[in-house]
Design a protein around this nucleic acid. Structure first.
Length: 373
RNA sequence: AGGCUGCCGUAGUCUG
């Protein structure tokens, strides 16, 4: 009975990596499963470096990775920076003849695809005894990330010719690709096709379409999606993300009143939701409302972060509010303990330049503790 | 019996 493995996995899934680590430290006998659960946890949350460090430690403790360990480690390598490590793992896997395994094979296809190495992706893909919707979707996603929409579509069609029925994830991969390239009509067409195939859209589909609306500034489509999303999507399916995306979409499309309406209707509002709304007001240049929303958010015990202050400082700079900006600039570190970045400083430089104080702008630029971007 | 692969909210990243 390995409770520890599942416990670590559970903590990791809830974004509680430190807790997962704590459990790990206390496990009397660390077997392969416990190690793998930990590596998988770190990999899943994009902590690639740490994940690979755990892998190394594991091997130093005399454990040999099995299929699942490799899958987790490869997931970590999907970060482009670890392409070399991925290659190393790849050759290890091949040496052990594990590349025939569907799960590992898929992880390898995806790894290469995410690194933009589509030729290698196909190479692995072609050696697979079976391929499933995951294998194909990885390829579609790989082409999509490279901006090769036609290739992505071709793959998607080839999958169907291969006798595999695309699921919602596969459809979404394609839809998102077109959305990112501002092909709103195509997005909507695919969305309709997907439903004709008997699949109901989930929240992720709506998020993709809304993303497309932002890129294309197509609020008309966004409004249509809004109505359908609220009708179709289940309350427990990413409701907060969906609503935030709607706030974001309306805000970015310049319809701040619609954004507020959605925001007001939300049952919970976290930092991300507040930030989305504030960004909308920053775009409008409505400093007064933005400042009072900022106060309200504090009042509701939502702690602002660096992004919150970017909206605040942007609106100061657009409105030329020198005094206000200094007040927030000070509060940012002194009251909220937020680390400043070059993005924040850029707002201030912009502000000084805007009010005609080029000397001050230049001085800040010279003395700033960042590399100019 | 237990760890496992593809899409996912403000922002970030890259390029300009």
């Amino acid at each position: 009975l390995n409770i520890c493995g599942s416990l670590i996995g559970m903590y990791a899934q809830c974004c509680k990596l430190l807790e997962a680590c704590e459990v790990f430290e206390k496990v009397p006998v660390r077997d392969l499963i416990v190690w793998t659960a930990l590596i998988g946890g770190y990999a899943e949350h994009g902590k690639c470096k740490e994940a690979l460090e755990w892998l190394e430690q594991m091997q130093q403790h005399g454990f040999t990775p099995d299929c699942l360990t490799y899958v987790c480690a490869l997931q970590a390598c999907c970060d482009m920076k670890e392409a070399d490590m991925g290659q190393t793992l790849y050759s290890q896997v091949v040496k052990k003849g594990m590349n025939q395994d569907l799960c590992i094979g898929n992880a390898l296809v995806d790894f290469h695809a995410k690194c933009g190495m589509l030729a290698e992706s196909w190479e692995v893909f072609d050696t697979l005894p079976f391929r499933d919707v995951v294998s194909w979707t990885s390829l579609v996603g790989g082409y999509a990330e490279q901006g090769h929409l036609e290739k992505a579509l071709e793959c998607f069609q080839a999958m169907q010719l291969d006798g595999i029925v695309p699921d919602v994830v596969a459809w979404n991969t394609l839809i998102l690709a077109y959305a990112e390239h501002s092909k709103c009509e195509k997005v909507y067409e695919l969305y309709a096709q997907m439903q004709e195939q008997g699949l109901s859209p989930n929240s992720v589909i709506f998020l993709s379409i809304l993303h497309g609306c932002i890129v294309a500034l197509a609020m008309d489509v966004g409004k249509r999606v809004h109505v359908q999303a609220l009708r179709v999507s289940k309350p427990d399916d990413n409701r907060l993300a969906l609503e935030t995306a709607l706030v974001d979409m309306y805000g970015k499309c310049g319809s701040i009143f619609d954004a507020v309406e959605v925001f007001t209707s939300m049952s919970t509002r976290d930092l991300v939701a507040w930030n989305a709304l504030l960004a909308g007001y920053a775009l409008q240049g409505d400093s007064e409302t933005l400042f009072s929303l900022f106060e309200m958010m504090i009042f509701r015990s939502v702690q602002p972060d660096g992004d919150t202050f970017r909206s605040v400082l942007i609106v100061c700079s657009h409105a030329g509010l020198l005094m206000e900006s200094q007040k927030y600039w000070k509060a940012m570190t002194e009251s909220f303990g937020i680390t400043k970045t070059i993005k924040h400083l850029t707002c201030i430089i912009d502000l000084f330049a805007r009010v005609g104080n080029l000397a001050a702008a230049g001085l800040i630029l010279e003395r700033m503790p960042f590399q100019p971007d």
